[in-house]
Design a binder for these strands. Structure first.
Length: 191
DNA sequence: CGTATTTGACCTGCGC
DNA sequence: GCGCAGGTCAAATACG
């Protein structure tokens, strides 16, 4: 793939999986803090124009990442033209897709609280893994970010999360947390 | 009753 | 060309 570079300034508790070897055998040594430290890390991350960050390493998959704008997907979806069948789907492996990046965390929980609201829209059993892969979409109306969550079968304490796209809205939880602070600043700025 | 999750069906791309 | 694996949809169900 065309020179994708994993971000290197990640905090210790995060690490982006290499795209072609998404699931290296050595486990991450640190625990994900309950706090949203890594959310802010995301905000600082350059978009990872990653290629196939297939977290499971299921060989045949060739999900390609790209630097295409997020709404490219939406367009294609709507322009689809002829009405989709009852149970549609299947727009996999589009050539120009959004930035993708994956990382692994050590956690007993599959759902990592990253401050955004996610809606689950699917779950699939994947090959070479005893754990299913869960598919989530950002619950924000205008946001088209997706993520996949899967637990490694060879290291059950490790959860692989693959993000696709970039949020086009602020993190609610972060804003909530900041709200009192902002109010205080506003108040103080009057003087 | 509204919202989120579950789940089976369907679609697409890729490898053989 | 066929089958497989992965990704998505939407009806059904669960939950508050």
């Amino acid at each position: 793939m065309e020179g994708r570079e994993p971000p290197q300034d990640l905090p210790d508790h995060l690490f982006v999986s290499s795209s072609d070897h998404p699931a290296p055998s050595e486990p991450s040594s640190s625990q994900l803090p309950r706090d949203l430290d890594w959310v802010s890390s995301f905000l600082q991350l350059p978009p990872y124009h990653g290629g196939s960050n297939d977290a499971t390493g299921a060989g045949s998959s060739s999900l390609v990442g790209g630097g295409a704008p997020v709404n490219a997907d939406e367009e294609e979806r709507n322009v689809g033209g002829k009405e989709r069948r009852k149970a549609g789907g299947g727009h996999r492996t589009r050539k120009a897709t959004r930035p993708r990046f994956a990382f692994r965390t050590r956690s007993s929980e599959d759902i990592l609280d990253d401050g955004y609201r996610w809606r689950k829209y699917g779950q699939k059993a994947v090959k070479n893994s005893i754990y299913p892969r869960s598919y989530y979409r950002c619950a924000h109306h205008t946001c088209n970010v997706k993520k996949q969550v899967q637990r490694l079968s060879e290291d059950t304490s490790t959860v692989v999360t693959t993000y696709e796209g970039v949020h086009n809205h602020p993190c609610e939880q972060l804003m909530e947390a900041l709200a009192p602070l902002l109010r205080q600043i506003q108040f103080l700025s009057k003087f």
